[in-house]
Computed example of a mutant assay.
Amino acid sequence: MAEPNQTPSLVDVAARAGVSPTTVSRVLNNRGYLSQRTKDRVAQAIEELNYRPNEVARALLGQRTKMIGVIVPTVALPFFGEVVVSLEHALEQHGYRLLLCNSLGRADLEREYLDLLISNRVDGIISGAHNDAIPEYADIKLPLVTIDRQLAPQIPNVRCDNEAGGRMATELLLRRGCRHPALLTSTSSPRNMREAGYRAVLAEAGIEPIVGTVNFHTPEPRRTQQIDAWLSRWLPNVDGVFATDDLMAGTVLEWAAQSGVAVPDQLRVVGFDGTEAIRRALPGLSTVRQPIRLICRGATDLLLSQIDNHAFSAGDQQRIKPLEFPVSLFEGRTT
């Protein structure tokens, strides 16, 4: 057994529970068949020895850990940084803490984090990562909610009204006199609802869409170089840009300043997100503002409802309508 003031080991837990170290490892990792009596003995030994945080032992006994896993691309991006802070505040009000995972745009890393969160017995997962084709989500037997990411029809998705936001941004450009507004976005597809709003407004106005894409996960400086290439190719035929996130809009403004293009006289620019960080850095940027706090509170409420009702969305094939919150338009000096 461990000496006084010495950190207990897995072997100490096994000795206290009267089982082998391999059995303790299998219990901790939920591998293979184990009787509930064995799980209870190992959980009791963990708690008595304080081998790991008591949350693990509680989970093994079928109780809650009061921990929620949160997966985002990276908190270095203002939108996701604000999302994490808002989620943390919303969860804290219910006595929960979060385990933060930055997927960094890598599907393999997101899969590793999913396994880590499950191994740590989190009570639920909120995912806002932007990787496609992650089949592991279909097998998760935990409460699961996504933010602005449609994984499957039966998994709750909380987001702003992206299509309405796309319409607002495009209509603003037309009101300000644009006749050839372009869309700058991460991915052009029918699933891009901000693009859908842009295309709908132009179709109504009889204007041909102009779309440029720069993948969401493109690292710097290549991301800026690709945006600059699109803008250099478009001008002078384009008189406005709707960028589907504020960082892209900021890059457009920087390119215009370096290229001697006057904003808004020669080029009008609208962004999307409206985070506090961007409002401070670019206070004059016209943008569509997401209600981030409301979105995160809605995601938290949905997840805790699943936890309280023992409802696992991945195992339910019933289609769930996304929970959408309205956006607002801020008209700044760039339009």
Rank of each mutant, 00 (worst) to 15 (best):
V327H: 15
T213C: 12
R31V: 14
N5G: 08
Q6K: 12
V122H: 09
G240E: 09
T185H: 04
K321L: 12
P181W: 00
Y198M: 04
W230Q: 14
K141V: 08
I126H: 15
D265W: 06
G95R: 06
H94W: 01
L184I: 04
T146S: 15
M67E: 08
P73H: 02
A203D: 15
T187P: 03
A43S: 10
A229G: 06
A107C: 10
R41M: 02
N50Q: 14
E47M: 04
G315P: 15
P8I: 08
I46P: 00
T335S: 00
Y96T: 09
G284N: 13
R280C: 05
A281W: 14
P322G: 11
E48M: 03
N309V: 08
T7S: 10
E276C: 11
G166K: 12
A277N: 10
V269R: 07
Q290W: 00
R222K: 13
R58A: 06
L10K: 10
T38K: 00
E254C: 13
E195F: 04
N131T: 15
Y113F: 11
E204D: 15
R58D: 06
R297M: 05
G81P: 08
I46D: 01
L235A: 08
L151C: 06
F242C: 11
D301G: 06
Q318A: 02
G177R: 03
A200K: 05
A229Q: 12
V211R: 14
E55I: 08
L87D: 11
E48I: 02
N309D: 15
F312P: 15
A45D: 01
A314N: 14
M193I: 05
N5T: 09
P190K: 07
P326T: 09
S127A: 10
R106C: 13
M193G: 10
N102L: 00
I207P: 15
R41V: 03
V241I: 15
S328E: 14
Q154C: 07
T213I: 03
S188L: 07
G124K: 12
C296G: 08
E88D: 15
A182L: 01
L235C: 02
S188E: 12
P190G: 03
R279S: 12
Q226V: 07
G69Y: 03
R297G: 11
R279E: 10
A311F: 12
P21L: 01
R333M: 07
V83E: 08
G332K: 04
P153A: 01
K66L: 08
I307E: 12
R176M: 11
L183H: 12
